[in-house]
Amino acid sequence: MASEEAKEYVLPPEVLEETMKASEELWKPVRKIKFRIYKYNPRKDYAPYWEEHELEVSRGMTVLDALLIIKGEADHSLGLRYSCRMGLCGSCAMMINGKQMLACQTRVLEAAGSGDVVELRPLDNFPVERDLAADFTSFFEKHRAVKPWIIRNDDVELNNPTGPYKQTVDEYARYYQFTDCIKCGACLSACPTAATDYEYLGPQALAQAYRYIVDTRDNGLDVRISVVDTEHGCWRCHFAASCSDVCPRGVDPAQGIQLLKKLLIKRKFGFKPHKPAEALPAKVKAEKKG
């Protein structure tokens, strides 16, 4: 029985052949590209230097694929960070031809364009750990500074939950976009303000602050305001919008920061953002079960 069901899903031979042909076409080497790679070990080297490698690339090959080939066959000492290889972990963000991109989501031919050189550097405005890997310590400290978790005052409900917190779709839509952040650091690296202000919280942390402040389950506006409503907080942003331009997940941090400013101005005029959401009474669940 199982084998009969399985037979139904086998592709017809002509379709299979076509798919195989398309796949071969995708991975067939088409052009020779020169990779210019930044090499620097702050513990050992006096100054950074560039290393060049030439590689035959195919249409489907990503920059990360190429780097792993170079690391495996030409330069074993090449330092880079990567993990999921599908744009979900945010580890492999780097400067590809001068712009912040994820190495695993950028095809080599797309990055090279009409030229034949791909230049790879570690993220700007981040300390260099080694070669293409950047040090994210201060980035995560800034993220932690805005308290990126739900803050509530009802300890009784928190310790003995009676049900889920009530939230409508409209309320959910206010912050959903910002939950997609993968903390790749591309936004902070692209920010011109962060290039000169080392203490600036940055687009990632400020967008996350907005995400938690407008969440109806949260009641932590007064706690976060001392962090975001400061000289190095949201007022340092002057809307160059490069953070949103380079974000690989479409999070749009620039929008979050401007809406955060709007919220802070409204608060100065006495506006209160929202009442903390109530827990749905347990009896509703009991009725549904019954």
Partner: peptide, 25 residues
């Protein structure tokens, strides 16, 4: 000299690096 490269901050040149970004930059 070493610290300059290890920090990798763009400094004031970062304000004017607009070529690869949008018109807002």
């Amino acid at each position: 000299f070493k610290e300059y490269y290890a920090k990798n901050m763009r400094g004031i040149s970062g304000w004017f690096k607009a070529r690869v970004y949008t018109i807002e930059r």
